[in-house]
Design a protein around this nucleic acid. Structure first.
Length: 494
RNA sequence: GGCGGCAUAGCCAAGUGGCUAAGGCAGCGGUCUGCAAAACCGUUAUUCUCCGGUUCAAAUCCGGAUGCCGCCUCCA
């Protein structure tokens, strides 16, 4: 089974064929470190995290490079506002980014280069472009001449002449063509700078990705990714620079993830609807956020709201309920009411195992098909139902008689979890975390609740059902749902 | 003005030429339970925005209409 990837340049799914057998080089544009990461950054990170996890689960040795832009106008602006060095700003937000990614269960990329550690590479890159006649310097600035690069617009499907017709154009510019973009910018008074053949200055935005991807992955590599907003101009410009310099294609497959909207509107500072990852994770288990994102295809826009997070939470609870069951059964000792498996069991168990294997294969096939996590999750939930069905049907059978199926189920869930980056928590810990977050959100006191439940337990033992039901409906008013088992009562918040 | 995307049940969301249109949430009926909850079993779109067309066959391809959205400026 081959992997298919939707390639932005052709707008079609293409069969993935890596440059070297068994190896994949992937470069994803990371953040500009001037503010905390929001849910949009989370989506890009989670999407490509799953891409890499799936490729690895399919046996590829993946080199994943994700950069940090640590010098740029917005960083400088913030540094000036706060009266600190630009590097202090970058350092701070890179650290916060790393915390957020770790909390989200995003695996650290193989290499996480920073722009300012590669100034020398960028300067020599620009030199090559100058020598080859693709770039020109004016008053300490260096620009890439888009007219010199025939294929400009190939990724985004734009034609230079048509763009210029209606586009807003920089007036009073030194550029030969308004679409020309800066490779190197002169530093203004008081701004950070590096020495260069064109004077004191700093790199333009696009050149860092070209320089760093070449350094770590070579002139041509397999996959280049990022948010769909980067298609133009950023990725178009990267292609122009890199291909002009090397004469070779930059990346064989370009992948772009869709946007996160909030209440059907684009997130933006002016609308004030930016949601930092760290704020959301105060109220939701990180896997809730992952599940919310992975339930849609990575190229579709998703609409963030507390309702959609709550739905994802309900789905995740369904998964963990089954995982908790499995854990409990594994810890169960023989009970006198239980029977050993009968002679019909082996073939029935074989059916369950076959079905599990089949669903696992379908899951993998779904991810092979342009990383269709939504379809894959459908199969995960099919396994949840299958196992719940098994547990119910065989609840009176000794563990020893059904351990083969349980083992296989455990393996299946471990596989799904490893690829999607969910179901990584211990079930009991998951429910504890969930309970704490939900209680805090609603201003409930866990101690109080448990005191009430204890009182109800006593009433139940005394068979005082009226009193027991009274306490339960009191708790129900607080959205607390009780679950009675033989000798204890557990609870959760809906 | 240029380029592109989307429209599937009450909600979210897969499917993009041919078996019964995945899955989640919500709802309904049953089993279980002191009663519940969870879980299980069953059930909830003869139909995929609308109108034409191609085809033996379309939610899926083509043309048109309507609606929503994104990019073209920093942006994941």
């Amino acid at each position: 089974m081959s992997i298919k990837i939707f390639h932005t340049a052709t707008r079609k799914k293409e069969v993935f064929s890596p440059r070297q057998v068994g190896k994949v080089g992937i470069y994803v544009c990371g953040i500009t470190a001037y503010d905390v990461c929001h849910i949009g950054h989370a989506r890009a990170a989670v999407v490509f995290d799953v891409v890499v996890r799936h490729l690895r689960s399919r046996g590829y040795a993946v080199t994943y490079v994700k950069n940090f832009t640590d010098i740029d106008d917005k960083i400088i602006a913030r540094a000036q506002k706060e009266g600190v060095a630009f590097s202090a700003i970058a350092e701070r937000f890179i650290e916060l980014h790393n915390q957020d990614m770790a909390a989200l269960g995003v695996e650290t990329p193989t290499i996480t280069p920073r722009a300012t550690d590669h100034i020398g590479e960028m300067i020599s890159f620009i030199n090559i472009l100058m020598e080859k006649g693709f770039a020109y310097a004016i008053d300490g600035d260096v620009y890439f001449a888009v007219n010199s690069f025939q294929q400009y617009g190939g990724l985004s499907g734009r034609v230079l002449d048509e763009m210029q017709a209606g586009a807003r154009v920089d007036i009073n510019d030194k550029k030969k063509n308004p679409m020309d973009f800066a490779l190197w910018k002169t530093s203004k008074e008081g701004e950070p700078f590096w020495e260069s053949p064109w004077g004191k200055g700093r790199p333009g935005w696009h050149i860092e990705c070209s320089a760093m991807s070449r350094r770590y992955l070579g002139d041509t590599f397999d996959i280049h990714g990022g948010g769909e907003d980067l298609i133009f101009p950023h990725h178009e410009n990267e292609i122009a620079q890199s291909q002009a310099a090397s004469g070779k294609p930059l990346a064989n497959y370009w992948m772009h993830n869709g946007f996160v909207k909030v209440n059907s509107e684009k997130m933006s500072k002016s609308l004030g609807n930016i949601f930092p990852i760290r704020d959301i994770l105060k109220n939701y288990h990180p896997e809730v956020l992952r599940l919310f994102m992975l339930q849609s295809h990575y190229r579709s826009p998703i609409d963030y709201s507390t309702d959609s997070l709550n739905e994802a939470r309900a789905g995740l609870i369904r998964c963990y309920t089954t995982l908790r069951q499995l854990k409990e059964i594994a810890g169960t000792s023989a009970n006198s009411a239980m029977m050993p498996a009968n002679e019909k069991s082996p073939s029935k168990h074989k059916d369950y195992i076959n079905r599990l294997n089949e669903l696992t294969e379908k899951f993998d096939a779904a991810l092979d098909d342009d990383f269709n996590t939504a379809q894959g999750l459908g199969y995960v939930f099919d396994v949840v139902r299958l196992i719940n069905n098994f547990v119910t049907a065989e609840r009176n059978i000794l563990v020893a008689g059904k351990s083969a199926v349980l083992q296989e189920a455990k393996k299946a869930f471990e596989h799904f979890g490893a690829v999607l980056g969910i179901l990584q928590d211990d079930p009991d810990h998951f429910f504890l975390t969930d309970k704490e977050m939900e209680s805090r959100k609603r201003g409930l006191d866990i101690m109080e609740i448990e005191k009430l439940i204890k009182g109800r337990q006593e009433a139940r033992i005394a068979r005082d059902w009226a009193r027991a039901d009274e306490i339960r409906s009191q708790l129900a008013g607080l959205h607390i749902v009780l679950k009675d088992s033989k000798d204890n009562t557990t609870w959760s918040i809906e």
